[in-house]
Design a protein around this nucleic acid. Structure first.
Lengths: 350, 350
DNA sequence: AAGACAGGTTGGAACGCTCCAACCATGTGA
DNA sequence: TCACATGGTTGGAGCGTTCCAACCTGTCTT
């Protein structure tokens, strides 16, 4: 070990002619310990003169708080995981990172967890809390909650502390947009994804919105497989959907490809709406109209939630205290419609 | 502080009937301390029985080693930063993360650095080393090196320890591919990016490759601005480039848009080749032929380099020891041509 | 005058590891 | 027999903070 002889709090104390406790009080002043202005000034001068830097490691060890959030991304490693899918995790990481920075917290990515079930390894005190992203295994989530580390889930729904986009509302916004353009035959391509939390919510949102806007279920089929989409698009005008709403942007790009194969133009013959406003929506042509899932807001919400859990933890209350409404209520983040070029008025003759 | 009464190494020692040093020796066995099999067994049983988990924080504090790599992504925060650009940083983070996992290391993302020049804040002992990604400020890099934290640069070239893709070789592969398809008029869209490390290398690679393949500089213009690209593509067949090679994938998608605006089909009228094999290359249509920058290999290389720096540090040698060839030589990672649908045979009649 | 109290400061224990010098057997060569 | 190495184990110092009870010095209250 190469302990370059660093300046410690004691050196500062000596130079300033005070005790190390006083130095600590000055440096951690937000804690509310009163200090005379003269003293504070002397200490700060000594700090500046010696170029003192707090040893974050020692502080963390002593206090038990690391000011670090761990983030668990789903199946980060699996070779089979497609790049588009990883993309979501990466965007989420960035969003959490930015939110954490605003709160002066650090972020680390936690490895390997789903593969070797090494959830206990989380317990090594390196993080004060966890953010779980889009986890699909109920057991995993349960085990993590059981470990006692404060944690918040984003885009999944197994545990106590949830943050997710307003999936139903987002779908409603999409339908509203399409209805406004004259569409009545709107298919929902639910896609092959089964076990996502969002999948179910969005599906429910679709059914609800159809009722709200008095769209007949016959005219608004829910499609599960690619062949079904193709079959629908092959129907003659007047019978085929004039718009397809998809579970996420990646599915929308699949619809693009199918439409092209059938000689249908987006948006002239077919309007397409995605969900998430991921990078792909920006990149594919025509630009995809989609529902922004407000990832940055989700992340901010998750970080804030984590911080309230800490505060409560600090006050000594049990985490699962019943009746603590404001932390147990899922945080639902408003979505926003982003209109690009993939949606247009319903074709003439419908 | 909520010190849940956790199991410590001393509890294990007591149960196993040995000293805590012995427990430590068993648990850190790779260090080469010899231990009797009976003892090891007893200790491990005690560990299992008590469910002992090493307090990583205490270990880090005591040893001064955190087994954590910090990664500095460029301009992470700036609002103006485009999503496509962030994408690179995100992919890099993932690549480093994966590489670090293989080496049993953690990764944290370091905030705010370019904005408030808080490089000293890196010195808080939270990380053992740094990976700098595509930094554009020579001063920043110099300051970080000066701080004494071992660090390796990816895709920039200011300091002592570099990892970068074989930019020249990649461009050569691209040219070779195009020449093989019959192209002679190959434009290089260098784009507006000025101060990237890779920018210069790739440009040099282009000039070299043109010489190698005896392509005349007149027929192979280097384009800096969009208007120049448009001007070139407006020339009649026989005079206009039949292929455009771009500095990166994002530029290639711009060329797509310009070609479409001019009624040129990719790849029938115009072949396009990108660089990086980023997500965008996969997503845009037609799929973009591009040079894979082997980010995963770059990351692995960077992590490995960092580890050799630690080893050397540990041996007490000065970091900037002259003549240490194998750590001072930049690591050049081979690239790979990825052929998709954006390249085809040169149009008839050229 | 004595007590209570507030503002400001202090000393030292505690955190749970790592690391090292020292130690104890036992075997080996001279 | 002694010196010496070798395998295995141990006790204790040290890391640099945080946190708390205690303390000091005034001022206010009764």
């Amino acid at each position: 070990m190469i302990h370059r002889n660093r300046v410690t709090i004691i050196d500062v104390a000596r130079l300033a002619g005070v005790s190390k406790s006083t130095v600590a009080n000055v440096l951690n002043s937000p804690l509310g310990v009163p200090i005379q202005d003269v003293t504070r000034k002397r200490v700060l001068e000594a700090v500046a003169e010696l170029g003192y830097q707090k040893n974050a490691l020692a502080a963390a060890f002593s206090s038990g708080r690391t000011n670090t959030i761990g983030i668990l991304l789903p199946q980060h490693h699996q070779e089979a995981t497609s790049r588009v899918y990883r993309q979501f995790g990466q965007e989420l990481f960035t969003a959490v990172f930015d939110a954490a920075c605003e709160a002066d917290l650090r972020v680390t990515s936690i490895p390997n967890w789903e593969r070797d079930a090494s959830i206990e390894a989380l317990n090594d005190r390196r993080v004060d809390g966890l953010i779980l992203a889009s986890i699909r295994s109920r057991e995993t989530v349960a085990a993590i909650y059981a470990s006692g580390i404060p944690c918040v889930e984003i885009s999944s729904g197994f545990g106590d502390h949830l943050v997710h986009p307003d999936n139903e509302g987002g779908i409603r916004q999409a339908i509203e947009h399409l209805v406004g353009l004259g569409h009545r035959r709107i298919a929902y391509y639910r896609g092959p994804l089964g076990d996502y939390f969002a999948s179910e919510r969005r599906y429910n949102g679709f059914v609800d919105a159809c009722q709200t806007y008095r769209l007949s279920p016959d005219e608004c089929p829910v499609l599960l497989a690619r062949v079904e989409v193709t079959a629908q698009l092959e129907l003659p005008l007047g019978q085929r959907p004039t718009a397809v709403l998809t579970f996420n942007d990646s599915q929308a790009s699949i619809v693009y490809d199918m439409a092209q194969a059938l000689g249908l133009s987006v948006p002239d013959d077919l309007s397409v709406v995605g969900f998430d406003n991921s990078l792909i929506a920006e990149l594919i042509r025509p630009g995809l109209t989609t529902i922004d899932n407000a990832l940055a807001d989700q992340a901010r919400g998750a970080v804030a939630r984590l911080m309230t859990l800490w505060k409560r933890d600090f006050a000594g209350l049990p985490v699962s205290e019943a009746g603590d409404q404001n932390t147990m209520t899922p945080l639902r983040i408003p979505t926003r419609l982003v209109v690009r070029q993939s949606t247009g008025r319903v074709p003439k003759g419908v």
